[in-house]
């Protein structure tokens, strides 16, 4: 652990958390609608993976605000998207669940559980063909690990030795269904271990997530086929904003909150004498400024024109051929 890395990890996790707390606030105020899935509690996974897997392509599920921020997407463009504004990353047509930025090789924002995994497999196939060593990263939850698309994907990726990192973000609950009620394995790596090398890491510890991805990435970069990483983590908030949380206990929540990724990184760094409290206070101030600017940008941006609803169905060449 060094100072530069601590700064990056802490800053991005804190940015992610404050972004989402602000999003929650504006959801309550009615500025944000639809489904809003918060990543609060799981920031170590989003930040640790993206810091380690810093090249290549990224396919993700719909709980992706912090992952997008950690990949380099501007918070203000994400906030504007949540507000449904013209300046949003997807022009206000995708919303919280559909953040795309091909320039960052960041391909969604997929809201069909496990639906992005076959696409990640295909992308990995193409990268192998194109001799791109960095490969593809696909993150999914415990819920996705029960879907047919998941099993098809580990099978094909393994059969064709594709450069693909399957990252299972196991927060135990598929909406309100505990993994043990619907799967023979609580440890998701059990599902993949006959297909590819598997790794586990502590999803509440950003350094462990980062180090594990770095280690596993070598296998991909050396052309040895796919890898599977499982991180156990926990979301403090409901599945989405409409979740009453009846399926889990306060005690369980407390166990994980004691392992909070942001607070623990801070404590660990101070204890090791690498930095002091003041150092973090300065980072917090920077985060606050970025978030305030993001909200201001989103609030002051214009709504899309009605015509926008009819754009981007097809590309211009197809539109011309049709008309």
């Amino acid at each position: 652990m060094n100072r530069a890395r601590i700064e990056k990890f802490y800053y991005l996790m804190k940015l992610g958390r404050e972004f989402e707390l602000k999003a929650k606030e504006h959801y309550m105020l009615g500025d944000i609608a639809g489904f809003l899935h918060l990543d609060i509690g799981q920031e170590a996974v989003s930040v640790g993976t993206m810091q380690a897997f810093d090249k290549g392509d990224v396919f993700t599920h719909y709980r992706e605000h912090v992952l997008a921020i950690a990949r380099g997407m501007e918070p203000k463009k994400i906030m504007a998207e949540l507000f449904g504004k013209k300046t949003g990353i997807s022009k206000g047509k995708g919303g919280s669940m559909h953040l795309f930025e091909p320039r960052l090789n960041f391909y969604g924002g997929d809201a069909i559980v496990a639906g992005h995994l076959p696409m990640a497999v295909g992308c990995a196939y193409a990268r192998k063909l194109q001799n791109e060593k960095a490969g593809v990263f696909a993150i999914f939850g415990d819920g996705a690990s029960n879907a047919g698309a998941f099993f098809e994907s580990i099978n094909i990726a393994s059969a064709w030795k594709l450069p693909l990192m399957f990252f299972a973000e196991n927060n135990y609950y598929a909406i309100g269904t505990h993994i043990s009620w619907v799967s023979p394995f609580v440890d998701l790596k059990e599902k993949a271990r006959n297909y590819m090398p598997t790794f586990t890491c502590d999803g509440m510890d950003v350094c462990d997530v980062y180090n594990t991805v770095i280690k596993a990435k070598e296998i991909i970069e050396n052309g040895l086929g796919p890898v599977f990483i499982e991180a156990k983590t926990y979301r403090y908030e409901g599945h989405s904003m409409s979740d009453a949380g009846k399926y889990r206990s306060e005690e369980e929540m407390e166990i994980f909150k004691r392992k909070d990724p942001i607070e623990n990184l801070k404590k660990k760094a101070i204890k090791l004498g690498l930095v002091d409290e003041e150092y973090f206070n300065a980072l917090d101030a920077k985060v606050e400024q970025v978030i305030n600017e993001a909200v201001e940008f989103a609030a002051n941006s214009p709504e899309p024109e009605i015509e926008e609803a009819f754009e981007d169905v097809f590309c211009k060449e197809c539109e011309n051929a049709i008309s």
Binding site: D57, F59, P102, Y107, G115, L117, P118, M119, A120, V121, G122, C123, A124, Y125, A126, R127, Q130, G148, A149, E152, S153, I156
Partner: peptide, 13 residues
């Protein structure tokens, strides 16, 4: 599902 899903991923790439 994978034939088409893989194809979409190839197209993205």
């Amino acid at each position: 599902l994978s034939i088409v899903g893989n194809a979409i991923g190839m197209a993205i790439a």
